[in-house]
Design a protein around this nucleic acid. Structure first.
Lengths: 106, 106
DNA sequence: CATTTGCTTGGCTATTTTGCCATGCTTCCA
DNA sequence: TGGAAGCATGGCAAAATAGCCAAGCAAATG
């Protein structure tokens, strides 16, 4: 793996890592339906607000969401719609795994 | 986030985590072109064979690849072709980020 | 058989990630 | 202007990951 390929893979890994957490996946899906404030997301996720805030900064840092301060609240929006296709592939893997699992049980 | 949703998100996170490493991304792309033995992949990645073997077991555990022993060698194959679309979305994010970055420089 | 080759696994340390608490900052309202 | 509401950040401890070496196991080869 040459240096060029390596740095490219690292860049991609950085983005995928941002996706690799249950709470962040959940939030992205909620944001796909429409913007939400940190408060709302905190409520939905059910974790400390500081935790949610850090998760959001991870997503923002990866370029997956954007934030918009309006008054006291900060609203987050999904920046990359193709993320949903992304998840549908993961869904396909899950289904394939489930099928495989059932086949082994027989 | 109710229990059902939570476990679903966790299942997806598990798969995405398996994708969240430069070497594993690289290997998946190589495997997309055709099967490879552990030896070959080790050569391509440029890490210890035990490291590569563990990476492969992570991918296998997530249901992303399958292995096939033939003689002394074990050949790995990509199990889920849609992974490539997955990456193309990541690519789109990278490009969007690059554009954003340039815009800020101006 | 004994050895070599190809791969996996155990064990260990170093690094990264996660989540909470405490604190600080910004905006709004009384 | 003082305080409250909404978020972000620093700091810390616990947990998860990553990488290598050493050791083990399976198949081929002599």
């Amino acid at each position: 793996m040459d240096a060029r390929t390596k740095s490219h893979c690292e860049a991609r890994a950085k983005i995928i890592k941002a996706l690799a957490h249950p709470s962040r996946i959940f939030m992205l899906e909620e944001l796909a339906k429409g913007e939400h404030s940190v408060c709302e997301l905190t409520e939905m996720v059910g974790a400390d607000i500081s935790t949610v805030s850090k998760h959001l900064s991870v997503l923002k840092n990866a370029g997956l969401v954007t934030d918009d301060r309006r008054g006291q609240q900060v609203f987050y929006t999904l920046r990359v719609p193709c993320i949903l296709k992304f998840f549908s592939c993961v869904e396909a893997v899950l289904q394939a795994n489930a099928l495989e699992h059932n086949a082994l049980l027989r």
